[in-house]
């Protein structure tokens, strides 16, 4: 193992320029992918924020007694799709309207707005079909006059979400493929520059494992370093956007950032393995 580490680090010192070029190429490939990931993450976060506002409001008839409302709320809370149920009395509805629509505050009179049961759905149940289904069940209560959930904008929101999802997946795969190809080519170039060394190793009797190990370690180290550099560049990019464009952006969670660096390392190891394997196939 010590020899493997020594040989791998010797490769860094013997060809520092090529090594720096490899790491930079890996870093920029992953940086492009990272930037795309950051945009996708922020679009997803923004859409999630809008999705969280999906709410079904069942307006109840005047004079419905509090006991019936509480019993119905308990019932509805037991629906598997439901996250929370909130009973809004006429007074609370009026107060809320005055707060949310301040410009019309003088128009609202006590008793103008009906009481309601406000239902929020769990994540994953906020699509138009599920919302319509839960709304229909709410409508079946005899004291419910009307059910509203903003059907039109919900359909638009989900269309946008689906388009963003498919486009994100396709672009993500394309970016990932480009990153893998560029990193693979870079590592192959580094291995090719040492083709003579590999052929001499084979001639003097080094085993395949012995030849392969330092290259794998070198690929791993380059992948890690490239990944860390990419992570730093992405973080810097996000801060510049925050600072000069005044967007509040969400950054990768520590687990996602670690996964990105590990992915860099894996690509490094796989790229090295494939590149060295080509030289080792000959006897």
């Amino acid at each position: 193992m010590r020899r493997t580490v020594r040989d791998a680090s010797a490769a860094f010192t013997r060809a520092p320029l090529l090594t720096a070029l490899s790491i930079t190429t890996i870093a920029f490939s992953l940086f492009a992918f990272g930037l795309f990931g950051l945009v996708a993450l922020n679009i997803r976060a923004a859409l999630q924020g809008v999705e969280e506002r999906v709410e079904i409001r069942a307006f109840v008839a005047d004079g419905t007694d509090a006991q019936s409302l509480a019993a119905a709320a308990g019932d509805i809370d037991a629906f598997p799709e439901v996250q929370s149920v909130n009973i809004v009395t006429q007074d609370q509805a009026l107060a809320r309207a005055r707060t949310e629509l301040t410009e019309f505050s003088d128009v609202f009179q006590s008793g103008v707005l009906p009481a309601s049961i406000d239902v929020k759905l769990k994540p994953g149940y906020r699509d138009p079909a599920t919302v319509a289904r839960v709304s229909a069940r709410l409508k079946s209560y005899p004291f419910v006059d009307d059910v509203r959930y903003g059907e039109d904008w919900l359909v638009q929101l989900y269309r946008l979400r689906n388009i963003a999802g498919v486009a994100g997946l396709a672009l993500g795969l394309a970016f990932a493929a480009v990153a893998v190809i560029i990193i693979g080519a870079t590592i192959r170039m580094a291995v090719l520059s040492r083709a003579d060394e590999i052929s001499i190793m084979r001639l003097v009797g080094a085993t395949d494992g012995f030849i392969r190990r330092p290259f794998l370690l070198e690929g791993f180290a380059k992948g890690i370093l490239g990944g860390l550099l990419a992570l730093g560049l992405t973080w810097l990019g996000m801060h510049l956007i925050d600072r000069y464009m005044h967007f509040h952006t969400v950054f990768f969670s520590p687990a996602m950032a670690a996964a990105g660096v590990v992915a860099g390392a894996l690509i490094g190891v796989l790229g090295s393995s494939v590149a060295v394997g080509r030289h080792l196939r000959a006897l």
Binding site: R202, L203, V204, G205, A206, T207, D208, L283
Partner: peptide
């Protein structure tokens, strides 16, 4: 392949 590697250690080329 391993035997070949071992053999080459005893050959000079």
């Amino acid at each position: 392949r391993r035997e070949i590697s071992k053999l080459r250690r005893r050959l000079g080329i």
